[in-house]
Design a protein around this nucleic acid. Structure first.
Length: 452
RNA sequence: GGUCCGGUGGCAGAGUGGUGAUGCAGAGGACUGCAAAUCCUCGAAUGCCGGUUCGAUUCCGGCCCGGACCUCCA
């Protein structure tokens, strides 16, 4: 079995992954804040860590994958206020949409999906411990983490507190001892969600949520913490500071993984810039599996440029994979070594896909063993599990198409090629391609309709 | 301004101190009534300048360019 190597942001190096408990790997990934539809950039991180979870399950006997849902947040409150919808309704609807999007993309559910609002007690406990340990202080109804109390602050994101100050672009609240101090707990007015606490009715800061949820399900020290590169600072830096200070002697996450951003026209796709497509937008333009393949076509740490051309290319690649599987009906096979080796090399999905292409060549030539390996390798990436017929013909009006094919075959027999070509062109315009086989029969498949 | 990451053929995108994967697109051919698919063949790349080295795309330094982060973000 190959050993898994991962790039650890904490050390900025590639390291052999050695779990704390070889029988049980524990993984935490930052999930969505449920105030609006997720966009395709959000989907990249989720998909990357889904592949990681699949790989870990393949390599180790047991994996606990925790991905939270943040359901208490200023943006949620704002969204509810402007729509008139209740806060619970906003979070319930958005969480359901998120789940549907993830399922469409082939991302398996995490083992545990904790909600922030159901873990307030754990957050309060951590905050109390931080205050007791001299790492936090109450001020003006807030509780703040004192960054100066943690010598390692900045170690994860590779910054010094001085550097952080230099770039500070936000007004410093007067009650902060240090401009870098961040909120653990803040007061909440009666009309907004809040919980009673030793510091009055309030709600948690964002960072403490993940610290508490990770601790509850994975323990004080666990193996891997993942998330987008844009969360490295401040979110992950703060999570780590809180947990390490509240739980002396613990290690929190030993390995930190950060996925690169998805760009649109050279810029990060983000809600704040407004340059985003929701997952639903994209799913309306291409088959879900093509979207997934597109997201895995570059290594997770790099930036990935989103484009319709890339989507179309992914679809074409899947066409070839499924054609190969149709040529050589696959049986069961172990995951091919080349695919496993590639994924164990810091999740090198492009290299794994190259191995799949090589297997597809053999399968195309009728090699059933290669076809089985192709499907087994695809499974580790969450790809190629559909039936070839469903991939090519799903959603087509088979009866009407077969009738057209029969008519066209008759025309060809009569050597009325003009008629035969007209029928073919007519259906192609509707996204159905005809392919004549040597034995005189005709096969058909759905293709992308060409824009006029 | 500070910190970090990256610049590979037309596009996407890996790897490597010693003849630069893979996919898409393109060219020629086989097959086809014509296509499509498939098969065969082919052309095509390491941002710039130095350094180390027998040899650098790879290591080091500088420069240029792009992006991310600097307390909203996957």
């Amino acid at each position: 079995m190959p050993s898994l190597v991962l790039h650890n942001t904490l050390t900025r190096r590639r390291e052999a992954f050695v779990p704390l408990d070889p029988q049980h790997v524990r993984l935490y990934v930052c999930g969505p804040t449920v105030y609006d539809l997720a966009h395709i950039g959000n989907a990249r991180g989720m998909t990357v860590f889904d592949v990681l979870a699949r790989l870990l399950r393949h390599l180790f006997p047991r994996v606990t994958y925790v991905r939270n849902i943040t359901d208490v947040d200023d943006k949620i409150n704002a969204r509810a206020a402007e729509s008139g919808e209740g806060i619970d309704a906003v979070t319930a609807r958005t969480a359901a949409q998120f789940h549907a999007d993830m399922a469409a993309l082939g991302n398996l559910p995490p083992d545990i999906e904790p909600r922030a609002t159901e873990h307030i007690a754990g957050m309060v406990t951590l905050i109390e411990r931080l205050i007791a340990g001299g790492h936090a202080y109450a001020a003006d109804g807030h509780v703040l983490f004192a960054v100066a109390s943690f010598g390692q602050y900045g170690a994860l994101s590779g910054r010094s507190p001085d550097e952080l100050l230099a770039g500070a672009r936000v007004e410093v609240a007067p009650y902060k001892r240090d401009p870098g101090d961040f909120v653990l707990w803040k007061p909440s007015p009666p009309d907004l969600p809040g919980w009673d606490s030793p510091w009055g009715r309030g709600r948690p800061g964002w960072h403490i949520e993940c610290s508490a949820m990770a601790r509850q399900y994975l323990g004080d020290t666990f193996d891997i913490h993942g998330g987008g590169g844009d969360l490295l600072f401040p979110h992950h830096e703060n999570e780590r500071a809180q947990s390490l200070c509240a739980l002396p002697g613990s290690g929190f996450a030993r390995v930190w993984l950060h996925n690169g951003m998805l760009n649109l026209n050279g810029e990060k796709m983000s809600k704040s810039l407004g340059n985003f497509f929701t997952i639903r937008d994209v799913l309306s333009r291409a088959p879900a599996e093509a979207v997934r393949l597109m997201l895995l076509k570059s290594q997770y740490r790099g930036t990935l440029e989103f484009s319709d051309a890339g989507l179309a290319e992914a679809r074409g690649e899947l066409d070839r994979f499924y054609r190969a599987l149709a040529r050589a009906p696959a049986g069961k096979a172990p995951v091919p070594e080349a695919v496993l080796d590639a994924l164990c090399d810091d999740l090198n999905t492009p290299l794994a896909l190259a191995a799949l292409h090589a297997l597809a060549d053999d399968a195309m030539a009728g090699d059933r063993a290669a076809a089985a390996e192709l499907q087994a390798g695809g499974a580790l990436l969450g790809l190629l599990q559909a039936d070839s017929a469903a991939w090519f013909q799903g959603g087509g009006d088979a009866a009407a198409i077969e009738a057209a094919i029969a008519e066209r075959i008759a025309a060809r027999r009569a050597r009325d090629f003009a008629r035969a070509d007209a029928i073919r062109a007519e259906w192609l315009a509707q996204g159905v391609a005809f392919e004549d086989r040597p034995d005189g029969t005709t096969d058909w498949r759905r293709v992308a309709t060409q824009p006029a």
